[in-house]
Structures are given as structure tokens and as C-alpha cells.
């Protein structure tokens, strides 16, 4: 696969989350779809503004949890009834009250791991190299106190000059080009 070259997008830097959200809404309203906001803390309004509503992390977690539950309960039942039946103080081989505890723990373990790693996977992380880091001002502020809106060049509506003037109309601190 050839490495993409050229312009990744245009990145506007904002001072406050309110400005960012407004700019993002404007961009969405203007028909831009391939874009992203970068903020130093979660700004849900910005996500909604760019049309991102639901995430699948809950679903992944639920599936992971159910798998963990089934795996451990199945394992316990298999071991205690079939593979290694031992008479312990006259209790039945299939001692479901006792099996509940490890099964419960594994439900949490699997769903927890699914929630964490599912989130990373859905985010496409790890991604140590990303074009946005090429923006000269990005790493100064994106994880501290600045708010960024990046309109990506793959968007059909993207046109370098027009998009730049659109972004500059949103009162950013700066608009910079981001290379791949």
C-alpha cells in the first residue's frame, strides 16, 4: 500500500471549547463530514457537533462479560462434574452456589478487559505516528489548553483555499496545513 502523501487537512486552533463547538457545528452544517476535533479533555458537545453519537464500547463490554461468565461457569461445571469430580464434604458435584463467585469475577474481568482494549481498538490505537502531530502548534496545546478542529482533505467538500477561508471565518487563533 503506497503511503499517502500531500495534504492531510487544515487544522484550526481555538481558545475555548465553546468556540470549537460552534466552529464544528458550522463545519458540519456546511457539509463537511471527514473532520475531527482535538481537545485536552472530553467535550461531548464537540463530538455531537461533528455527528458522532453512539459508540460500540458498551456492546463490546457486554459481549465480553457474557463470554467471561459463560467461560468460567462452563469451566467450573466441566471440571467439577466431568473432569475432576471430587467429593468435598458431601456437596454435590454441580455446586452452583460456589460456582457463582469465580464466574462473577470472570464476568467482570472479561468485560473490563473488553471495555479497555475494545476502546483502544475502536479508537485505532496504538497509533504512535499520526499526521496531526505534524501540525507545529498541535503538541503545544492539544493536550494542555487548546482546542483544535481539523478538516480532512479526503472530504469531498474539501478544497484548500475555500476551506481555509471557511475556517478563518470561525475566529480561530490560527489555521495551519497538516501534511501526511
Amino acid at each position: 500500500m503506497p503511503l499517502p502523501e500531500g495534504l492531510y487537512g487544515l487544522m484550526a486552533e481555538f481558545e475555548s471549547p465553546t468556540q470549537l463547538v460552534r466552529a464544528a457545528k458550522a463545519a458540519h452544517g456546511a457539509g463537511y463530514r471527514r473532520m475531527d476535533c482535538y481537545t485536552p479533555y472530553p467535550v461531548e458537545e464537540a463530538a455531537e457537533a461533528i455527528g458522532f453519537h453512539r459508540d460500540e464500547v458498551s456492546l463490546v463490554t457486554l459481549i465480553g462479560g457474557l463470554l467471561g461468565l459463560a467461560a468460567m461457569f462452563g469451566l467450573e461445571a466441566w471440571i467439577s462434574v466431568w473432569a475432576f469430580p471430587l467429593n468435598i464434604a458431601g456437596r454435590p458435584y454441580y455446586s452452583w452456589p460456589a460456582f457463582v463467585v469465580p464466574a462473577y469475577e470472570w464476568t467482570i474481568l472479561w468485560s473490563g478487559l473488553s471495555a479497555a482494549f475494545g476502546m483502544l481498538a475502536l479508537c485505532g490505537l496504538p497509533k504512535l505516528y499520526h499526521p496531526v502531530f505534524n501540525a507545529p502548534n498541535f503538541r503545544n496545546g492539544a493536550t494542555t489548553d487548546k482546542f483544535f478542529l481539523c478538516l480532512e482533505s479526503t472530504d469531498p467538500k474539501f478544497e484548500a483555499g475555500e476551506t481555509r477561508s471557511f475556517l478563518e471565518g470561525q475566529a480561530p487563533i490560527s489555521v495551519v496545513e497538516v501534511e501526511y
Partner: peptide, 12 residues
């Protein structure tokens, strides 16, 4: 792991 503060990421 390349965290860049994308709002999509933040939501997840």
C-alpha cells in the same frame, strides 16, 4: 499509544 485527544476517542 498515540493519544491525540480526538473527540471521537474521548467519547469512547
Amino acid at each position: 499509544v498515540g493519544w491525540r485527544g480526538s473527540v471521537r476517542h474521548w467519547v469512547r
